[in-house]
């Protein structure tokens, strides 16, 4: 059947405007990003404790969201927590994406023993429960924010490796790759100049999904007390610290919890939409 028909249809669809839900998500993410950038200017001493003004309910003068047990302002704490909520997960997603691109491309293109070794390694990592492994390692090595980042990069990489490997396998069989081989191009050029751009939509979609997963994982670890040290501004940490005062100042728990859910959803939706757009306009048929 005529390919031209399909092409016209696709052109018609991709000319469509951005859906409203995506606009809302992007605005939300922009606000969180602004909080990361300008939060420290707005609330320079967000984690300052003031025992005299502890446990004030939401709507109190000077404290629109109230304060917690230690007298920290919930609004200031939540804004300051945006940094830890966004930076870590983005680092995890980007790190595991880079690892995935490197190992996945090698495995998919080179095949043979290298593929076997890399694939068994990913199987091994996939068999580990992410949170449990993170808790154990943090417990043994003393935890800390960047240790958690490094650990999550490792634990998140199998999905990237597998997705890249599958995409590369699929592309490698295509005639344009054989044409590149006929030109005796170096394997690195074939892998990274020819194949990689054609699997990039998969990679980027997966990285966006990983940001959302990592945000939840980070918050869970902080909630369990192994992610960030006590006293740090962090949404997960806020949940665990304010559990006891849930009925004195509900905002102390509801606001960070809601933010975790909303930001994770927004990142997911944007990632999905981006992937669809790239598949439509890009080469992956």
């Amino acid at each position: 059947m005529t390919a031209s028909l399909g092409a016209v249809g696709v052109g018609f669809r991709s000319g469509r405007r951005m859906p409203a839900s995506i606009v809302v998500c992007l605005v939300l993410l922009a606000v969180v990003l602004l909080a990361v950038l300008f939060g420290p200017l707005l609330f320079p001493d967000a984690t300052k404790q003031d025992i005299l003004s502890s446990l004030m309910p939401a709507g109190s003068p000077g404290h629109p969201l109230g304060t917690d047990e230690l007298g920290r302002d919930i609004l200031a704490l939540t804004v300051a927590g945006a940094a830890s909520a966004l930076v870590g997960p983005v680092c995890v997603a980007v790190g595991s994406m880079l690892l995935g691109i490197l190992l996945g491309t090698l495995a998919g293109y080179e095949r043979g023993p290298l593929d076997f070794a890399i694939s068994r390694w990913t199987d091994l990592l996939l068999a580990l429960p992410v949170l449990l492994a993170a808790i154990v390692v943090s417990g043994v090595f003393g935890g800390g924010y960047w240790t958690t980042v490094a650990l999550l990069v490792l634990l998140f990489s199998p999905s990237d490796i597998r997705i890249v490997r599958a995409g590369v396998l699929e592309q490698s069989a295509r005639p344009y790759i054989e044409a590149a081989q006929m030109l005796s191009l170096s394997r690195w050029r074939v892998m990274f100049r020819h194949i990689l751009p054609n699997v990039s939509s998969l990679v980027i979609t997966n990285a966006m999904l990983n940001v959302a997963f990592a945000l939840v994982a980070f918050s869970s670890l902080s909630f369990l007390g192994v992610g960030v040290p006590p006293g740090t501004a962090d949404w997960g940490r806020q949940l665990t610290d304010s559990r006891a005062i849930m009925f004195d100042n509900p905002a102390a728990v509801i606001v960070p919890a809601l933010l975790i859910i909303v930001v994770a959803c927004a990142v997911n939706l944007v990632g999905d939409w981006l992937g669809q757009r790239m598949t439509r306009s890009g080469g992956l048929a």
Partner: peptide, 24 residues
Amino acid sequence: RRSRTPEQMQIVFQDPYSSLNPMM
């Protein structure tokens, strides 16, 4: 492929849709 050079021979495939890299 290793024993052959690009100057010796080249190939043109059947399907003109998949034999060119769509991203280039």
